[in-house]
Design a protein around this nucleic acid. Structure first.
Lengths: 346, 346
DNA sequence: GTGAAAGCGCTAACAG
DNA sequence: CTGTTAGCGCTTTCAC
């Protein structure tokens, strides 16, 4: 790999001159010299060494995308589109995206910190834990950072997410407007089944926000949320099913699943139990994942702009990197009700 | 960000000593000194600078994943799982994955070459063009490189793909065994519709390989392929539909779609035309994408191990990076027939 | 056992 | 207009 020095020698000029030519720096260079240099550059296929450059304090044009767990697949209905938005926007800005992950979240954070804190201009944390150490450390060192899909506890860390609370309210209001009064909600959480039963359930941040919206709507209609009408499901399919079944035994007329997957699993349980959707039970989801429209019945849901969340995250991060960032910002992306056929008038 | 020098000063030792301690180098260091250094390292939160290290000729532990076009989404049925396999295997080996893409393939290649050829230890090209300039350049400079899903023209570039030809044969033999004799094939190609009609169709490399397998099987059964029983579809849905319809007018009893998407679109066209699958027409696909089993009817197809292709690609690349690579290797991953309900006895 | 110093490739301040 | 040189943070040879 040819270096500045090689070019300089070949042309009988100094490395400084070569540097000025290749960088189009403001310094005046004799046209003849410039041409000579350019020719040598082309001949030797010279590429500036990104590392040496970075060592001089330049931007690396790389953003690190830190995501929780290598087995939360990229084909996942949330991570996939978010990453797509990130990559599209990064490409637009001619930046590269470095994927940083591990087999546990701790490992992910440690690895990211140990290896790449010097390489990346900034980081996007995808759905980090609220108490993320990595987020705190980076924030304290002033490294550009945006948390996606969760607000971390550490103040000073900007974040972006959809407006989950409003979405929860919208979903519930839709059901209320349809005449439903016994409206159940299904939350999701970290795995609390067999292996770590006993520990308190750790619900997803977003699920909890959506629940707040659900409560907001109920209260606005003068109703108090009934704890019996809330259930939690998680990765374990068996335990989740029985949880869903217990909920249905409470005879709700409508169910708000905190995401489309939860809603869909509810529909499945209904089918097994002979409950018809939407005739006997209305079901609404959240996310509007790619195939929500081809569910049977097509799922009424709250759409969140997943791709745009990714794109906006990059934009926010770049603002920080370039020093144009205002204050800490918690950007909330708009959600909307997508009415399909899984909800009906009571 | 603390540097070696900071630590050295704080401890009243030389940077060399600090370096030896943090790297666990073989040089003997007085336990007391070692401890002092380690303490300072912890206090100052020292992280070695990856760039400075790389400048000394060390591995960067980053692999560049070059993929064609930012709008070929990561949620794509092929790219998604491939990338998943890549990331999983890279993580296993504690390497990071850098996503390199652009808005055109040319741009992607130029950007990757210009900016990142010094940063990455090696590159994975996802479905590059056969005449990729980037591949040639890298191969000539001896940069570790594996082409995924296509063999490039440049000799000396290792590749990995599924055994498309065998898969094409398997699909066709399945149909033949079911008693079919008028077996059509649907290929896919680059967009040759409105905008660039007139230009010769550029078929996908893999589609062509599968077609070879199709021919192999027919000939082994003493039949000569009928050109009228082959059609090409592409991104344009309208033109593709009419192409599919023309094919069906030739009255095949079975269709082999070169991928599941093509097969599925054929089923749709059939439905519109009142042709029942599999009663009137058997349809077989290729890939076994995630939702092939939930098609209506569930699609008989040839499974290719997409995730494993990604994982193997990383393994091959690392062998090159670490100098353990044998010769140029064109690894072919095994495929298998997945029998479902879109094919039936004639 | 430890320190001084060269040098990886590059940029930019300083001298001509 | 161009060359010399210091130094980014690190590793490693050589000398003590």
């Amino acid at each position: 790999m040819a270096t500045l020095k090689d070019i300089a020698q070949k042309c009988g000029v100094s490395t400084a001159t070569v540097s000025y030519v290749v960088n189009n720096s403001p310094r005046q260079v004799l046209p003849a010299t410039r041409e000579k240099v350019l020719k040598a550059v082309a001949e030797l296929g010279y590429q500036p060494n990104a590392y040496a450059r970075a060592l001089k304090g330049f931007r690396t044009q790389v953003i690190g995308v830190v995501f929780p767990h290598v087995t939360v697949p990229l084909t996942n209905v949330y991570f996939g589109p978010v990453l797509e938005g990130i990559v599209a926007q990064a490409t637009e800005r001619r930046m590269a995206t470095m994927l940083l992950t591990g087999f546990t979240w701790e490992e992910t954070e440690q690895g990211a910190e140990r290896e790449f804190s010097g390489i990346c201009d900034g980081f996007l944390l995808i759905a980090p834990r609220r108490d993320s150490q990595f987020a705190s450390d980076l924030a304290k060192s002033g490294v550009p950072l945006v948390s996606v899909g969760t607000q971390v506890a550490e103040p000073g860390v900007s974040s972006i997410d959809s407006d989950n609370r409003t979405g929860g309210r919208l979903a519930t209001e839709h059901l209320l407007a349809l005449g439903h009064r016994r409206i159940a909600m299904i939350l999701t959480g970290e795995d609390v089944s067999p292996s770590n039963s006993g520990k308190p359930v750790k619900h997803n941040w977003s699920a909890l926000e959506r629940q707040h919206g659900y409560w907001d709507a109920l209260r606005a209609w003068g109703m108090e949320p009934d704890p019996n009408l809330t259930a939690t499901i998680w990765h374990d399919p068996v335990a989740s099913r029985s949880s869903a079944r217990r909920l249905l035994n409470q005879r709700p007329t409508a169910v708000f699943g905190c995401n489309d997957g939860a809603a869909y699993r509810t529909v499945e349980v209904c089918r097994e139990s002979g409950i018809r959707v939407p005739e006997d039970l209305s079901v609404i989801g959240f996310d509007d994942i790619a195939n929500a429209a081809s569910f049977d019945p097509p799922l009424t849901t709250i759409r969140q702009p997943i791709f745009e969340i990714g794109a906006n995250a990059v934009e926010m991060l770049c603002a920080q990197i370039e020093g144009r960032a205002q204050e800490v910002e918690h950007r909330l992306m708009p959600v909307e009700l997508i009415q399909r056929r899984s909800t009906a008038h009571i």
